[in-house]
Structures are given as C-alpha cells and as structure tokens.
Design a protein around this nucleic acid. Structure first.
Length: 286
DNA sequence: AACATATACAACCGCTCATAA
DNA sequence: CTTATGAGCGGTTGTATATGT
C-alpha cells in the first residue's frame, strides 16, 4: 500500500507563483505564523500543495532572506563547507545566514562547480582532477589543501577581473590580460574557515575550546590533519609544535596507533568522528 | 531578425526521517 | 511494533532570459 499523496493534486496550481498567491501566503503566515503546511493552503485560500507553499515561503518569501549575488566570503565558505559536508545543502545553509539550501545548491551547480573545474579541482572530491582517482594519504591531504588555497586565490582573481569587464578568451576560460587593473592578491596560507567546530572530545575544557577556535580561525596555520584534531597522528603532515602538544594531551587515553579506529570526538553537528580521515559520509550520528 | 544553445534559478518530485496514534 | 502522516532534504526538471550564430 503506497502513501497517500501529500495533497490533492487535481485541484492545485503548479508552476510559477503569482503576485496574488505570494501576497496571500505572506499575509497568512504573518498573522498565523508557520504552522501545519498541509492545512495551510486551504486556510490561506491557496490552490497550492502544502509542500509548494513551504518551499515558496522558505526559498523566496521569508523576510530574512538575503537577496543578490554571493560575496567572495560566501563563495569561500561554501567551497570549504562543501569539502567538509558534501551535498548537505541544508547544513551548509545554516552557516550562511539569509541563504537557503536551494539557493546554495543552485549556486553551486551553476557557478562554483564550473569554477572549481576551471581551477583544476574536482568539485566532488575537492582534489586535483588528475589525482582524483589515486588513493588518499597524508601528502595528498596536504596537496588537496594546497590546491584549495590555489583555487581560492584563482577564484578571487577571476571574480575581480570579471567584475571589471575582463574578457574571457574562448572556451578554455583563459583570462586575457589587460593592463588596466592588476590586483595583487595576498592569499593567506591557512584556510580561514572559522566554524567554531568542536571536534575535540567533549571532556575537554574551555581553555582548549578557545584554542580550538583559534586554530580554526586566522591565527593558526596548520595542516589539515591537525585542524581536524589528528595532530601528530599518521595523518599529520606539519611540524607544528602546538599540534604535537595538543595531540599528546587529547589522546592520552589511547595510543597513536589505535586512533584510526577510535571515536575522536563529536563535531558541531553531533556527528561522531571515528576514523582518522574525516569522512562525514560514514560518520555515525551521535 | 530568427533561430539555436547555454545559463540561471524557481519549482517539483520522490524519498527519508521523526513522531504520534 | 506497526502504520500513517507531516516535514524536510537533495536531485532533477521546466522555463525565462541571455548569448551566440
């Protein structure tokens, strides 16, 4: 026995919303609030499916939506979050106030994906395209990070130039150099993603939490493994003394040899991190 | 000007998950 | 425990607009 349909399809409008429908939906939600989407269309006098109303409200009519082009910072954040979370658009959207999952998804598919490809990065794996199929090890983790940094730099230059009317040369997407504007982009060496992610084990104190925040912020420059709390483990590829101290203190209950199969902590989403390589697709829910 | 193709994005569809009965 | 239901998510499609030929 199949599920009953979410709404009566025969008597509902489909396709683009009219101004009148928008007004009805907005005024109804303003006076009654967001509630039962199934019954809302009838109550609001709309010949629409509840799902359609919800989508229209969330993606287009909500007053707190930020319209307009994505900023460079939003661009960077989306790329970084996607490298961590994959196609979890709703999670990504929670980190971009005023942006919806649908908007980010569309933006990704129409803009970011193409830019990554142009920069030689596989948009799915966030790794260099020519190495996308090779097995991952610590040196490649570092290369991936380097590629990401290079791409972000490239992306910024491209966006600046495009905004000043630079021409793109043929299908290869090459930039034609013009004398007019030369931007010197000083790219910070570290990825400046400040998610306030707390991947460290829950027993750790506030001081450590503050340090973790620092590390994910601009102040520290660490390898990927260290930023994910795996410092000095086999994934660690930097010689950051701070990483080594951190690793030895946070892993006092287990040896470095067994960390790969241990629960190393919980991230901000409540995902249990239990492998040496941060892989959200296989992490269990806490 | 007319047509073809590419692009952007709103909207839809089918599925999963959470929850109440 | 099972089933029905609503909410939400992510993939896909449809369509308007822009650009190229």
């Amino acid at each position: 026995m199949g599920r009953s349909p979410c709404c009566e399809k025969d008597h509902t409008n489909k396709g683009a919303w009219t101004k009148e429908e928008d007004d009805k939906l907005v005024s109804y939600i303003k006076s009654h609030g967001e509630g039962c989407w199934r019954s809302l269309p009838r109550s609001a006098g709309l010949l629409r499916c509840g799902k359609s109303c919800r989508l229209r409200w969330i993606n287009y009519l909500r007053p707190d939506l930020k319209r307009g082009n994505f900023t460079l910072e939003e661009d960077d954040l989306i790329i970084k979050l996607h490298s961590l979370l994959g196609n979890k658009w709703s999670l990504i959207a929670t980190r971009l106030p005023g942006r919806t999952d649908n908007e980010i998804k569309n933006y990704w598919n129409t803009h970011v994906k193409r830019k990554l490809l142009r920069g030689g990065i596989d948009p799915t794996t966030h790794r260099p395209i020519n190495e996308a199929k090779a097995p991952r090890d610590s040196s490649e983790t570092r290369e991936t990070e380097d590629s990401l940094v290079k791409f972000l730099s490239f992306s910024r230059q491209l966006q600046k130039k495009e905004s000043f009317g630079e021409e793109r040369n043929d299908q290869k997407g090459l930039i034609c150099k013009k004398e007019r504007v030369e931007y010197s982009i000083v790219e910070e060496k570290c990825l400046d993603l400040n998610l306030e992610l707390r991947i460290s084990p829950p027993w750790q104190d506030q001081q450590h939490h503050d340090e973790t925040k620092l590390w994910f912020g601009r102040e520290r420059s660490k390898c990927t493994a260290c930023r994910f709390g795996l410092g000095n483990g086999k994934e660690c590829s930097c010689d950051n003394v701070k990483c080594q101290v951190e690793y030895s203190s946070s892993s006092s209950s287990h040896s470095s040899s067994d960390i790969s199969s241990s629960v190393i902590g919980y991230d901000f989403l409540g995902l249990k991190l239990n492998t040496s390589v941060l892989d959200f697709s296989t992490s269990e829910m806490n």
